[in-house]
Design a protein around this nucleic acid. Structure first.
Lengths: 235, 235
DNA sequence: CGCACGCTTGACTTCTCTCAAACGCAGTGG
DNA sequence: CCACTGCGTTTGAGAGAAGTCAAGCGTGCG
């Protein structure tokens, strides 16, 4: 019952004009008058860990801006396994493909409780049609996604399992700059790195024993960045 | 001397109005009047196998439409190895990132002699600013690239080397529908699938011995699609 | 003719997967 | 309060896959 259910709490209608993180979201460049073009409500939602924003294959009616938390985009393989294709952090947009008229290409699952804004497709389309100021930002979001996808491939899918796990830690570190980072369930780690859950677990356990990472709380780590970088590069 | 050199022949100024494959390129929806907005020449080039369109890190001045042939986008890893991130076929656009104001994120190398159109950044930017008919197509190209990137990850980077090679054959088959396909150098195959050159070679050689694929000419194959699909799914 | 380069093959090592079991923690119910 | 249970993590042992290093082929080109 917990899996696949949408566990979203409606927080109210978003006031984009006053958005605290507007500088890094899709609407960054909009000007006062542009907001009058928004004729459908943009809702703000809180989604718990384990909740989903949308399912692969659904006809898309909205994209989502991630305001906080962490969201995984997964695709399911023929053999039933999942593959995590990208992690979305605050500022990213999930479901861009609906703006190109396609159904959702992934299932978006929340890994760390998230605040998101639901952007109805029509709103974005209208803005895109009527104000050029959205173009650049929209292009930036596409470009960001693509760069992330390529990075994912070159960083997290090459080298030994050891190197990949080390690089994943370094990636997660970027999120919360302060030398601490929250890791994911071992199954997710495996689905990101194309290794089995066991290999993921063994490797993380090894890092803990070596003192390269230290678990300060459940799945929360402080890391030895230098040593991780050595391992990431191949010792 | 052969590597890294741009081996391009200038074929003349492209006449986009009369383009034979316009229905599948960026300018698909443009109307008569829109072409007057093109104030810089769009050149058509022929690039030989081994030639490059651009190098990773270069400040981008143009994107390229692939009219024929096959182009690989590669990124070089810290250890000097290359990683092939995408293959571009006719209709794809290389170097979209320059339209978002970024330097090239890959090196674009021609694998099979290609005809390309060079689209100066300013031309695309002006069109994008002044005619909404480009928006949709531009978004489609971004969307295509991203879908391709995700597919790459899930199809060609999961499962055993055997499965990956089989899936690569099936991918290449889509290109030239008629049951025949041209394979790539073994090193490239390896760089696509994240396996070593030797493993790529062994596996292809195996397929040949099993009769799953038949080499009809240098690196040109006819394939047994059904059996390949079985292998791709894991026997 | 011989050299270079890419493909193939072999033998050996190392890594990762597989299958299985044990562990630890949190929530449930007696 | 404590035993029970479910779930994710950890660990082990053995099989199998891929990497490594090295050598041999074959073809095209100078």
């Amino acid at each position: 019952m917990r899996k696949g259910q949408i566990e979203a709490a409606w927080l109210g209608r978003a006031e984009c004009r006053d958005c605290g993180i507007r500088h890094l979201v899709l609407f960054a460049d909009l000007q006062e008058a542009d907001f009058d073009l928004i004729h459908l409500p943009i809702e703000e939602l809180r989604v718990e860990t384990g909740g989903t924003l949308y399912q692969e294959g659904d006809a898309g009616t909205a994209a989502f801006t991630i305001r906080s938390g962490l969201v995984k985009l997964v695709q399911y393989l023929a053999d039933g396994n999942q593959r995590i294709v990208r992690l979305l952090r605050p500022g990213s947009v999930a479901g861009l493909e609906v703006l190109a008229g396609h159904p959702y290409e992934h299932t978006a699952v929340v890994l760390q409780e998230a605040l998101v804004c639901r952007l109805p497709r029509e709103v974005v389309e209208r803005l895109n049609r009527e104000t050029p100021r959205l173009h650049r930002q929209l292009m930036n979001k596409w470009s960001d996604s693509l760069r992330l996808a390529d990075e994912w491939l070159t960083d997290l899918n090459t080298g030994t399992a050891r190197q990949r796990v080390a690089r994943l830690f370094l990636h997660l570190l970027q999120v919360s700059g302060d030398g601490r980072c929250r890791l994911l369930g071992r199954e997710d780690v495996g689905a990101i790195l194309s290794v089995t859950t066991e290999t993921a677990s063994r490797t993380v356990a090894d890092f803990k024993r070596m003192g390269v990472v230290t678990e300060v709380a459940g799945n929360s780590f402080t890391v030895d960045r230098d040593r991780l970088e050595d391992i990431a590069a191949g010792e």
